[in-house]
């Protein structure tokens, strides 16, 4: 091979390029480990220093279910990414915003309209909301999210504020699985 005749720096460069591209392709199609920030997914993900494990085979919304946690491009700014939970699949009828309205002095406002304002999620879209309904910019503001913007499904998280080994919980750096929260209703309560 001619490669053997090349100077050492060009050989190193060639290896570096190939390894970086391989890493990039894995990031694109298979798996990504990435930082998340912000209060919108509390208490599932903390506001700082949480890192999430993302599976990329769920790209474009393929195989995703109601209640899954996702990473997507922000519809209003493709330089930013968002972490949300799917709270409506195509064809579903969901309330636009059933969350509690609190005014600036802390009073809870009662508005019956919010339990009668529905939207039908359009084909090829999902409805997404942050787990922290009080501080989340989501479908309630920018409407349904086109599945084409979905980059993957969040399956687990680590928090680097936590100790490397937590003996009481037997986990490393606060490792936890991020589960689907759409479950059978508990008929005993209320």
């Amino acid at each position: 091979m001619a490669v053997g005749a090349l100077p050492i720096w060009s050989k190193t460069f060639s290896y570096a390029i190939r390894s970086l591209c391989l890493l990039h392709i894995i990031h694109m199609y298979v798996y990504e480990f990435t930082e998340t920030r912000g209060e919108s997914m509390l208490p599932t993900l903390s506001a700082t220093n949480d890192y999430v494990h993302v599976l990329k085979n769920f790209q474009n919304g393929k195989g995703l279910k109601m209640g899954d946690c996702i990473v997507a491009l922000k519809p209003t700014d493709s330089n930013h990414r968002i972490c949300k939970r799917i709270t409506g699949m195509p064809g579903d009828l969901v309330l636009v915003d059933p969350s509690t309205i609190v005014n600036h002095i802390g009073d809870v406002l009662v508005d019956k309209e919010r339990f009668s304002t529905y939207i039908k999620v359009p084909e090829g879209h999902v409805w997404v909301t942050g787990d922290n309904l009080s501080h989340s910019l989501d479908s309630r503001t920018y409407n349904a999210l086109p599945m084409g913007l979905i980059m993957g499904k969040i399956v687990a998280a680590n928090n680097f504020d936590k100790p490397f080994w937590d003996s009481s919980r037997h986990n490393i750096w606060g490792f936890k699985w991020i589960k689907n929260t759409f479950v059978d209703a508990n008929t005993e309560s209320d």
Binding site: P43, T100, S134, T181, F182, V183
Partner: peptide
Amino acid sequence: QLKELVQWECQFEGADYACFPFKRLF
């Protein structure tokens, strides 16, 4: 089939966040 999805309403209270569950039924 009746299903539930619990989300939260969190407020920053001094040092930490206080989260109250908000249940959605489907």
